[in-house]
Amino acid sequence: MTNKSSPKIPELSSYDVQLTPEVIASIREVLPQVGEDVVDAVIAEVPPYQDALSGHMGETIRTAVGVALGGFLSLASGAGLAADVSAATPPALQGAYDLGRGEARSGRTMEALLAAYRIGARVAWRQLASKAVEGGMEPAMLVEFSALVFAWIDEISEASAAGHADERATTGRVQRQLRERLARRLLAEATTPEELDDAAARAEWTPPSTLTAVLVPNSQVGSILAKVNQSTLEFDDLRDLNDHTLMLVPDAHGHRRRPLMKALEGRRAVVGPAKPWREARVSYERARRVHFADLGSDTEQHLVELVLSADSDAREDLRAQVLAPLADLRPATAEKLTETLRSWLLHQGRREDVAADLFIHPQTVRYRMGQIRDVYGDRLDDPAMLLALTVALG
């Protein structure tokens, strides 16, 4: 990864500190021990570092501490401080910046990093000040020296913070790209389970039990993301849906579906069914169908309409087939009898309910059903015909 920004050279020339060769020698002598003491204090007092300062990363941190202390001494020993700033500080600041990036990659937070700097500053100041006095520094100069120590700590901690932030930003972009690729693979028909598992691992995404597809207007994405699972996948390269983004929400099944629907109220979103995560495409396709049919926001409330509209041509053929006995009647009569037959099927033959549904007298229902039986005969007692009629007229 390349650096997003370079650490700036500190402007510390305003500190009027003149270190004699004796003071410099005294401080230089103790720098290795100061570095070790700083590391030990960080281990003891900052919990995230208790098991971190071993192996390669531990050596990197120790080296960074040593470079930072050496950079300070080079800076503090310059004539009037300004002369050696450009030569003395870049290695130390670059080391601090790189340290911040490494800490972000290791998963430690900015708060932990800055806490380590605070602890390190306290330990370093105590020992550096003690050695400076031993080397003959005048007490009056100690105040300026103290200010310089903490100003330098501020500079290198700021460089580390910048490195940490840049690494997090870079990592975040890469992770988003990998998760978008995972979402694309989930929507593809030919993707194998092994390919999906590999894509999830590359994206550092822990597969949930289920995924629920949610189609969201682009203008609503930000506000909705704040209310759903942070592992939600996003994908906005949708065919015929340029103004929408797909969210694949983890584990919104069972009793968790209700909070999701509550969060989406008034958002003009369409929510598919919860499906095993590798079958997210099924949830997406169903949400698409409900969106284009303009049925509502919850696909689970429109399953009948979805089934009946799955093959509109086949349904029209079925309708023509089962209504063939009425084809020879006058169109107005056929329409009334079709309407009555549909209500009779849906109300399971309860004459009073059919009459209330059609706003007609029960005797009229009886008369019309008599006409229907005349043309259908025994076929109205055949379960297969009743099923076909119910589907065709549903």
Rank of each mutant, 00 (worst) to 15 (best):
38 V>C: 13
24 I>R: 14
210 T>P: 11
185 R>Y: 01
59 E>H: 12
135 G>W: 07
374 D>I: 05
47 P>Y: 05
330 R>Q: 04
75 L>P: 01
376 Y>P: 06
56 H>M: 09
149 V>Y: 02
132 A>F: 09
340 T>C: 01
259 P>S: 06
382 D>F: 06
50 Q>M: 15
45 E>Y: 04
304 V>E: 12
101 R>N: 14
313 D>Y: 07
281 R>Y: 09
188 A>S: 14
100 G>F: 00
85 V>T: 12
60 T>G: 04
158 E>L: 05
40 D>K: 08
161 A>K: 06
366 R>V: 15
294 D>Q: 13
136 G>C: 06
19 L>R: 06
94 Q>C: 15
25 A>P: 09
238 L>G: 00
209 S>T: 15
340 T>G: 02
300 E>K: 04
232 T>F: 08
143 V>W: 11
323 L>A: 01
26 S>Q: 08
19 L>M: 09
193 P>L: 03
71 G>D: 09
226 A>V: 07
318 L>S: 13
77 S>I: 12
50 Q>C: 14
151 A>P: 14
342 R>F: 08
146 S>C: 09
313 D>E: 09
10 P>G: 01
287 A>T: 01
56 H>Y: 04
97 Y>T: 08
246 L>I: 13
254 G>M: 11
36 E>C: 13
218 N>K: 12
194 E>F: 02
256 R>Q: 12
78 G>T: 05
235 F>M: 10
254 G>D: 11
282 V>K: 05
259 P>Y: 00
107 G>E: 01
293 A>F: 14
168 R>L: 01
247 M>H: 04
255 H>Q: 07
47 P>E: 08
6 S>A: 01
93 L>Y: 05
264 L>I: 13
23 V>L: 07
20 T>L: 13
50 Q>I: 15
377 G>P: 06
13 S>M: 05
192 T>E: 13
171 T>F: 02
24 I>L: 11
55 G>F: 06
54 S>P: 06
121 A>P: 01
253 H>L: 12
34 V>L: 10
379 R>G: 07
298 D>P: 15
348 Q>I: 04
14 S>G: 09
253 H>E: 11
31 L>M: 05
259 P>M: 03
154 D>S: 12
376 Y>D: 07
213 A>M: 09
71 G>T: 08
215 L>F: 03
365 V>D: 07
252 A>I: 06
31 L>G: 10
194 E>M: 00
248 L>I: 03
42 V>T: 04
393 L>N: 03
254 G>F: 14
44 A>G: 07
187 L>F: 00
365 V>E: 02
99 L>Y: 10
71 G>N: 14
99 L>K: 03
212 T>W: 11
14 S>N: 05
391 V>H: 08
124 A>H: 03
353 D>M: 01
317 D>C: 01
282 V>H: 08
82 A>D: 12
217 P>I: 05
288 R>V: 15
216 V>M: 03
193 P>V: 03
65 V>F: 12
282 V>A: 08
318 L>Y: 04
191 T>F: 00
